[in-house]
Structure formats: C-alpha cells, structure tokens
C-alpha cells in the first residue's frame, strides 16, 4: 500500500436524477487499512455514492479516485471488491460455481481462494447447492464470498450483513478486521447503527450530504448522547421523535 495516497478520495461528488440530488456534494477521503461505516437511512445516497466510487455510475459533478487513480478506469476494478445491495448471484449455479466464476473474472484460478471464502462464509458444506435453493441469508453470504474471493485492497460493501445471523455476522466483522489490519480499506454502507462500533470511523449521511464524520465515541460525545441513533438525529437536526428541531434565536 502506498503510504500517502488515500485508498478512496471523493471530491465534490454530485449525482442528480431529474430534480433529485441523490448525492449532493460529498468530499470524503479514506485512508488505507481502516473500516469505515457509511451510515444513513434508506434513500440518503449511500448506494449512489458507492456506485460512483466503484465507477458504475457517472457523477453529475465531482471526481473520485481509488488508490490515486481517477475513476473510471477498468484497470482499477481488479483492486476493488464491490458487493451490491441485492444478492446478485446466479441462482442456477451452485455456491462453488458462483464463487469460481467471479474468481475467474478477477483472474484467480486458484481453488484454494474459493475454498477460503467458502469457509469464511460458512458455505463449505453447501458448495454443491444451487444458489436458488439457499435462504436469503445464505445468498447474502454467497454474495460476500464472491466479493472477497480476489482479495482486493479496497472493499465497497453495500449492506453486507443484512439477513445474516448474529454469530456469522460476528465472524464477518472479525474477518473484516483481519483484512483491515492487513491493509485493506473497507467502506461498509448500512442503515442500521448496531454495527457502527465495529468501524474505525463513521460517516453519517442524509439527503446526499455528510452530516458528521468521526469515531463512534467522537460522534456520540459531540452530540452529547450515549447512543448513535440519538447522535444521528442530533446531527440531522431532528428531535428524539424525528421532527425538525425548532431554531433557537440568540
């Protein structure tokens, strides 16, 4: 990993759909070897932001760089692991065939790489099962396995743990931590706050804008609260029932 080059760098990223500004001028720099939580409600612009960073959507304005290279650049894609919000696996292929397929696209023909991610996602004993016969949680795990198989230095994960049982979720996070310790940069988009403490840094977004950025403790302290949900409401200018706070004149 090159020391001074940010793993992810977004400058003034904007994405509009008609009159809707899904992403409204996000500046964000993420360093290497850390786990970042991109937190916000559904429709806050998390997925659109990640898609632009991955080069899958064209920004209306602004630029994104991955590992110092301006996006879009196809050569970058082998160094990114992108897990979309939907499962995005082939239902008629078996678990192993799905992972092996994405491994081959990434230039990995090593069966050990497939076995490694199948073990990680606890799908080793379902390797021959067609994806269409898996539960929703298992398909989510399979989707994650397909994302991790080529061991990219940057992971962009959109709601990776939805539907995954708590024990396995803990394993995922332990693996994410090992990857980060080895230098991988991980950006996890989520609309739930209960995993935020596992991230090194949090970025709260709402209506396409960054509300606040910092560690979990910093954000709670700055909001004068002990839980992140209240902190989010505080930074969004909402009261405890989600209503806009009344402006206080000085």
């Amino acid at each position: 990993m090159t020391g001074s080059v940010p793993a992810v760098e977004a400058v003034g990223l904007v994405k509009t759909f008609g009159s809707v500004r899904a992403v409204d001028g996000i500046d964000l720099t993420l360093g290497a070897g850390r786990i970042y939580g991109l937190l916000g409600p559904n429709g806050s612009g998390k997925t659109t932001f990640i898609r632009m960073v991955a080069g899958l959507a064209h920004p209306t304005a602004g630029t994104a760089r991955i590992l110092g290279t301006l996006v879009p650049d196809r050569s970058l894609l082998a160094r990114i692991g992108y897990m979309p919000q939907v499962e995005a696996v082939y239902p008629e292929l078996s678990v192993e065939e799905n992972v092996a397929f994405f491994a081959r696209l990434e230039g990995r023909r090593d069966p050990a790489a497939v076995n490694r991610v199948l073990d990680l996602t606890d799908l080793g004993d379902r390797r021959g099962t067609p994806a269409m016969h898996l539960s929703g949680g298992m398909r989510r795990r399979l989707s994650l396995a397909c994302t991790l198989v080529h061991e990219p230095p940057v992971l962009l994960l959109d709601e990776p743990t939805v539907g995954v049982d708590p024990a396995l979720r803990a394993q995922f996070w332990a693996h994410f931590r090992r990857l980060a310790d080895a230098g991988t940069t991980i950006l996890v988009a989520s609309h739930v706050m209960d995993e935020a403490d596992r991230c090194d840094e949090l970025v709260f977004v709402r209506s396409g804008r960054i509300l606040v950025r910092g560690t979990s403790a910093e954000i709670r302290t700055s909001a004068g609260t002990t839980d992140l949900e209240s902190a989010f409401l505080h930074h969004a200018g909402l009261d405890s029932e989600g209503r806009p706070l009344t402006a206080v004149s000085s």
Partner: peptide
C-alpha cells in the same frame, strides 16, 4: 434486473 450485470461490470470484464 437481478443485479448480476452490475456485479459483472464491477469486475475487470469488458
């Protein structure tokens, strides 16, 4: 519509 195309496009495949 199933999202696999987007996933394909996030790999180096042209």
């Amino acid at each position: 519509v199933g999202g696999t195309l987007e996933r394909l496009l996030a790999t180096p495949v042209s």
